[in-house]
Amino acid sequence: MNGGVGDPAELGPRPEAEIPPEACECAPENPVEQFLRTDRMPHIWCPGCGIGTTVNSFARALLEAKVDLDRVAVVSGIGCTGRVAGYVRLDSFHTTHGRAIPFATGLKLANPNLLVVVYSGDGDLFAIGGNHIIHAARRNLDIKVICVNNFVYGMTGGQVAPTTPVGATTTTTPYGCFEPAFNLPALMDAAGAVYVARWTSYHVRQLTRAMVDIFRKKGFCFIEVITPCPTLYQRKNRMGEGLDAMKYYKEKSKVRHGAPTSEVALTLDGDIIVGKFVDRERPEYMELMRSQLAAQLGDRYVEVEHLVCS
C-alpha cells in the first residue's frame, strides 16, 4: 500500500546496494535481482509486509530447481499478492480478481511446456476465485499455486476474508469476525491437489524447498504461506508490527509433516501447524485427456503439443 500512486519510473534513479569496499572484488549481485523488474522498485508493499519475503524464496527456488526461466509464466489475480506478477522479470500476467487460475488453465493447455505458477492472495484465490481453484485441483491441472495468506483484504483496506480467524477485527467485521474460516490445506486436499504444504514467511528455507518440490512435481500443487499484514490485519488486532508477526510465527509454528489436513486449521492466536501435508500421485489433466482421446479416436487423434497459431 506504500506509495501506491505514481509511476516508479518517475521517482528518479534507483540507488545501488552499498558493498563493503574490501569485498568489491568478490561481490555478486543480489540473487533475487535478476528475477525482479528493478525499474519498478521500490514496490508498493508496506513496511513489514511478508509478500516480498516469499518472492525471495520463489527466486531462489527457481535457481535451485534449475528451471529455464524463459519457460516460466507467473499469473496473479488482484490484491497485494496480485502485484507479484508485475514485479518478477518473467512472462507475467496480472489478470482479473479471482481469475488467475482459469487464465492459467488456458495458458497451460495451449502450451504445456510452460511452468505456470499462480501467485495470489487468500481472498483472490478462495473467495472470489474459490470455484476456480477447487476445479483446477479436481482436474489435477499441472499448475503451481502459491497462496500468500495474510488473513485479510489488504489492497482494499483490511476487510474480512474467508481466512480471517474467528474473533479477529477487520474493517467490515468491526465487532469481530464470527464467520468460520476456511482451512485451506484441508480444502485443497479434499479437492484433489497432489501436493499441499503450509509455511510462513519466517520459514524462508523450508518455503524455498517446498517451491523446488512443486516446480519438479507434475500436477496441481498448492503452498499456503502465512505472512504478516502489519498495516491492516495486525493493526486492527493489536498484534504489533511485521516483525512481531514473524516472531509469533517462529514461536508458534509446529512442523508436522504429513499431518491430516483436518487437523491444521488456524485460529486467532493458536499454534500454526506447518509442513508438507500431502504429496501423492494422480494422473495429470493433459495425460488423462490425451490417453482418453487416443484410446477413443486412435489414428484420428491429432496430438499437438503447443497450440501456436501462425
Binding site: N2, E18, I19, A23
Partner: peptide, 19 residues
Amino acid sequence: GYVAINVERCKGCGFCVEF
C-alpha cells in the same frame, strides 16, 4: 562473508536484524 545494503530500498522492517 559480507552483506551489501541498498539503503534506499529499505523500509525498516527489522527482519534482517532480528533473524
